[in-house]
Simulated assay, not measured.
Amino acid sequence: MIFCQKLQKEAAPMSFAPVPGELGERILNNISAEAWKLWMNHQTMLINEKHLSLADPESRAYLTGEMEKFLFGGDYDQVEGYVPPEK
């Protein structure tokens, strides 16, 4: 178990760094698998709604910045008009 900075609670860790380099190690050591799944869902919405291409270096840089803000605190982009489903 790790203390997840995103969820502010003890949670199950990921089994490997999800991205290469120093950022990947920071995520591995401070972000839970549950929080990473939340990011993956948010990232998918950003890619779809903003028509991003992962082949474009600017799109990848944008997503990396949004990932850091989403996971570690910051004013990250929201998808306009999105209303989460009620449980």
Rank of each mutant, 00 (worst) to 15 (best):
M40L: 14
M1W: 00
C4P: 08
L23R: 06
F70C: 08
V83F: 14
I47Y: 03
G81D: 01
M14N: 05
D77C: 08
E34M: 03
E22L: 14
A55F: 13
I2D: 03
M1V: 12
L54I: 12
L46W: 06
P84Q: 05
N30M: 04
Q5P: 04
G21Y: 13
D75N: 15
E66K: 06
G81Y: 01
E10Y: 10
L23H: 00
E86I: 09
V79Q: 04
M45C: 03
G21M: 09
L52Q: 02
W36I: 04
F3K: 03
E68F: 08
G24E: 13
C4V: 10
F70I: 11
I27H: 08
E34A: 15
Y82P: 02
S53M: 05
A12H: 11
Q8T: 12
A55S: 13
A33T: 11
S15A: 06
N29A: 14
L52E: 02
P57C: 06
N30Y: 03
P20E: 10
I47A: 04
I31A: 00
P13E: 00
M1S: 07
P85M: 02
A61V: 05
F72Q: 12
Y76S: 11
S59H: 13
L54D: 00
Y76Q: 07
E66H: 09
G81I: 03
G65E: 05
K6N: 13
I47D: 02
I2P: 02
C4D: 13
F70Q: 06
P85K: 01
L54Q: 01
N30C: 12
L38C: 07
E49I: 00
A17Y: 04
D56T: 08
G24S: 08
L46A: 04
Y82F: 12
P13K: 03
V79G: 05
E86F: 10
L38D: 14
V83W: 07
D56N: 06
P57W: 10
I2G: 02
M40W: 10
R26L: 13
H42W: 14
Q43S: 14
